[in-house]
Amino acid sequence: CHSECLGNCSQPDDPTKCVACRNFYLDGRCVETCPPPYYHFQDWRCVNFSFCQDLHHKCKNSRRQGCHQYVIHNNKCIPECPSGYTMNSSNLLCTPCLGPCPKVCHLLEGEKTIDSVTSAQELRGCTVINGSLIINIRGGNNLAAELEANLGLIEEISGYLKIRRSYALVSLSFFRKLRLIRGETLEIGNYSFYALDNQNLRQLWDWSKHNLTITQGKLFFHYNPKLCLSEIHKMEEVSGTKGRQERNDIALKTNGDQASCENELLKFSYIRTSFDKILLRWEPYWPPDFRDLLGFMLFYKEAPYQNVTEFDGQDACGSNSWTVVDIDPPLRSNDPKSQNHPGWLMRGLKPWTQYAIFVKTLVTFSDERRTYGAKSDIIYVQTDATNPSVPLDPISVSNSSSQIILKWKPPSDPNGNITHYLVFWERQAEDSELFELDYCLKGLKLPSRTWSPPFESEDSQKHNQSEYEDSAGECCSCPKTDSQILKELEESSFRKTFEDYLHNVVFVPRKT
């Protein structure tokens, strides 16, 4: 048989008469490798580009789960590009990614509803959504962080984005990388972005840091009482949809009607710091009717980097990364020049730590249904340095008659930039024990000054392991946590139920 035959053949030295091919099969003959313009397919066939392209389009058009959109890589027609490569849609070739590779997620039936953290986790790592997304989240724990972890990498949506009755959302900033909504599939009414009845939605994105392009379709905003109209108009300008909307697409009466839409800028007039305090004062603000001013709200939190936005980490279910302080308005003076500047002394802060701070007014709604208010920009203030805590785990070892090696770990709280350490030492008198000992005694162990690591005695271990207080009263049991108490109650309830079950099964009433 021919060298490319495997198993047997019907005619000697003829690659077209093989029972099976050793390498690849091409047009009725066995070959060692697939010549151009053919590609290896499933490690035994040679196919042309049209064959591989037909497989790709067949799966793409069917949208069946589990099928493969075949691509070409290293002269092979394979189910998908290997790690580190992405497909070129024009020629199906796998090309190296520039940075992290995109991950295209194809949605069944063309859309997916995100109504819980669990459903959001199914899209973790996706960068391109081939379909439409509907966000409908009523509640949950730590929602802002969970949504950002699972949806934060999405850069492109081919269909539309719909935010509907998501009472738990305060902001859409968890879509931190969303840059493009194509609108290839539109919501009824030709809408590519749809926001309806979101009672706590206050911000779409921080438009000073976020760009969003909507290729096709219109915007729809109705019944978002805490979303200011200025935020919607800003989205029109940034996304390129200005002029597409009709009169009733953006409701003037049901958007922002319960919001404090600040239209003035508060400026800080005085800032002073110490290692654990920050004193702030800002310019006074009074609405047209000074009785509408209820006070100020001061927001602050630790910020290692200057990239904080107002609604980071917030949701309507209680999660809030900001510390909020309510401040009463100052006494009002008739003389504008003698107006008191409101302020606040922030206490209990960490030394040498940068804080993000902003302040906003708290006002009631005027009778004319106009909203007044003022808010400052987010500023960054760093507390002063102070003395560091003591170095940890000092170790001293003498390696000769004239040297001592000293080692330690950095302090747990540096409280500033540590530039150097101060080492103090003092000579001590020799131990009298060394002169009084009889060095001729056998088995004498000389006193040693070398360091030995501390260890816990058996008594201390027994005390720590004991669940009861000892007789001397030195140790006591740790208080039980809520989960331990709940577990004990469940076990007790189970024992009672099981005992009742045994009584009912074992003891049967005697027939009379």
Rank of each mutant, 00 (worst) to 15 (best):
T386Q: 04
L293I: 08
G313K: 15
S274K: 12
G343A: 07
K267F: 04
P342T: 07
Y300Q: 15
L201T: 03
P391D: 03
V308S: 11
R176T: 15
T185N: 07
V238S: 14
W286P: 15
R138H: 03
F175S: 00
Y355M: 01
I395S: 10
Y305N: 00
D315K: 03
F358L: 02
R272W: 01
V128I: 07
L107M: 08
P284L: 10
I250K: 02
L294R: 01
D384G: 12
D257C: 10
K267N: 12
S260A: 12
D384F: 01
A316V: 03
C126S: 01
T185L: 12
C105R: 00
K253R: 05
T185S: 12
N150R: 08
I250L: 05
S400N: 07
Q403I: 02
L204R: 00
W205F: 12
K226N: 13
G295R: 02
T386G: 04
A259R: 08
K409N: 15
R164H: 05
F221V: 10
I327G: 02
N387T: 05
T185V: 11
I154S: 01
T371R: 09
Q382D: 04
F358R: 12
T113I: 05
R369N: 13
A168R: 15
S338A: 11
K267C: 05
V363F: 02
L252H: 08
S321I: 05
P329H: 04
R202Y: 15
A385F: 14
D328K: 12
F299L: 11
P329A: 11
L345H: 03
L294M: 15
I154N: 00
S158I: 10
K177D: 12
D312I: 15
I378Y: 02
Q216P: 02
K242R: 06
N399C: 02
C126M: 01
W282L: 09
W408A: 00
I232V: 04
S158L: 12
A316Y: 12
W207K: 06
I278S: 01
A120P: 02
D335T: 08
D292Q: 10
E283F: 09
L147C: 02
Y372N: 15
G139A: 06
I271A: 04
L107P: 15
L229M: 03
F358I: 11
S333I: 08
L212I: 11
H341P: 11
G159K: 01
G131E: 01
P411W: 01
D393M: 14
R138C: 13
H106F: 02
K360T: 03
S376N: 01
Q258P: 13
V324P: 05
G125S: 11
T254A: 11
V359I: 15
E148K: 06
I188K: 05
N190T: 09
I232T: 13
M346Q: 05
G139P: 00
V128C: 06
V359H: 01
A120D: 01
G183F: 12
C261L: 08
N255A: 12
W286I: 00
A356V: 02
V381M: 13
H106L: 08
F296C: 11
P394F: 02
G343P: 03
G110T: 09
P329F: 09
S132T: 10
S173L: 08
S116F: 14
I378C: 05
L169G: 04
E146M: 08
T353S: 13
L186Y: 07
C317H: 15
V104G: 05
P391M: 03
F299W: 05
K253F: 09
L169K: 01
I405L: 10
D328S: 05
G139N: 11
E231H: 09
A259P: 11
S321F: 07
N248G: 10
D115S: 12
T127H: 08
Q245N: 14
G183T: 02
N320P: 09
H233G: 01
P225W: 00
Y300L: 04
L252T: 07
L186E: 05
G139R: 07
N150L: 05
S398Y: 12
K407P: 00
R182F: 12
K407H: 14
S239I: 15
L123P: 01
D206E: 15
S400E: 15
D326S: 15
K277M: 07
V238Q: 13
N150G: 05
I163C: 07
E155Q: 07
I214M: 06
E368V: 15
Q245S: 12
N136L: 15
V324R: 12
S333A: 06
E302T: 13
D197I: 03
S274P: 00
P304A: 14
K226E: 08
E310T: 02
L147M: 09
I157H: 00
Y285F: 13
L279Q: 03
F174Y: 09
S158C: 13
Q203F: 01
L169N: 01
P388N: 01
Y285P: 08
F296D: 09
L133W: 00
I214W: 05
L362A: 12
L294Q: 03
E246V: 12
T213A: 09
N136K: 09
L196C: 05
W282E: 00
L107F: 05
P394S: 15
K267R: 11
A259Y: 02
R370H: 02
C228E: 02
G243S: 07
A385V: 08
L293V: 07
F311C: 02
L169C: 05
T383E: 00
R291N: 13
L219Q: 02
G295T: 04
W352H: 15
N248Y: 05
N320C: 06
C105K: 03
K337P: 13
S401D: 08
N141D: 12
R244I: 07
R291S: 14
T213V: 14
R179G: 15
W322P: 01
A251N: 10
R369A: 04
F175N: 00
S239R: 10
L227W: 00
S119T: 05
I157D: 00
P388M: 01
V238A: 05
G140S: 08
W352M: 13
D326G: 04
L252W: 11
E231N: 04
S402A: 09
E264V: 04
S171G: 06
L143A: 03
N334K: 11
K209Y: 13
P225H: 04
S274Q: 05
S274E: 06
W207M: 13
K337L: 06
E237K: 14
D249E: 15
W207F: 10
L265P: 11
G343I: 09
N224K: 00
S274F: 12
I395P: 01
D326C: 03
R291C: 14
R176F: 04
A168G: 00
N130T: 07
R370W: 09
N263V: 05
Q199D: 15
N307T: 05
Y372K: 12
N320W: 14
S376R: 00
L133E: 00
L107E: 12
G217V: 00
G313M: 13
L204C: 07
V324K: 02
L252S: 11
S333N: 03
W344L: 05
C126I: 01
V117T: 01
T113R: 03
S401N: 15
W205Q: 02
I154R: 00
Y305P: 12
E368P: 06
G318K: 15
Y372S: 05
P329E: 14
P391T: 04
R138W: 00
T273Y: 14
P304I: 11
R179P: 00
I278R: 00
Y285K: 08
M346H: 02
S208F: 13
L204F: 10
I271D: 02
P284M: 15
D289I: 02
